[in-house]
Design a protein around this nucleic acid. Structure first.
Lengths: 92, 92
DNA sequence: GGTAGTTACGAATTTCGTAACAATC
DNA sequence: GATTGTTACGAAATTCGTAACTACC
């Protein structure tokens, strides 16, 4: 599991479409499709239902999405906090 | 930034020593040292003070440690939640 | 036949470990 | 000189993109 995979998952979940998510991430479809497959393989369960029009979240995917967003938000918060402290009062 | 880097950071923060953290992670020292350097480079500020006996957290590192632990805990929770839902009532 | 996701495969990138280095006691 | 972290560098592993494939309207 990697942050890249998590970002990919969120993009596909939000777009409901690997192709659009790939464009949004400036990536081609195959690697993005592989990210999702790797995630599903690692978690041991499918996260999406493949329809003729795209990808629809399964219950496991809905559950993962909540955590995924929290993880990415926490990473963001970590970066901002550290940058603030790092350039803070004691720093030259 | 990757989850691997975050795990490496937490191990070094807890051990106060790259060598011990490397053994704990089943990794050799150089890659682990590089993980920390990459993290510091990406965050734009040092996280540790290098002493003659090991690594001591700087204020920026202390701040990052709180977030890092939350990120790893959230990843863990995501895995467990999805596994539970995935093998849940609707699944065969 | 058009639109969707996936698989094959070679090229580019990343990451590892051994060895050598630098610095502090 | 022993113990620490870091840099050099070649080998191994990963990840990418193009092209080809499969499946469903």
């Amino acid at each position: 599991m990697s942050l890249t995979h998590i970002q990919s998952f969120v993009a596909v979940a939000e777009e409901g479409h690997v192709g659009r998510a790939a464009r949004r991430l400036h990536l081609s479809q195959p690697p993005l499709s592989r990210h999702i497959l790797a995630l599903e393989d690692e978690l041991g369960t499918p996260l999406f239902e493949r329809t003729s029009r795209g990808m629809r979240l399964l219950p496991a995917g809905e559950a993962f999405l909540l955590h995924a967003r929290r993880i990415l938000a926490e990473v963001d918060a970590a970066v901002h906090t550290v940058r603030k402290v790092g350039t803070g009062p004691t720093e030259q």
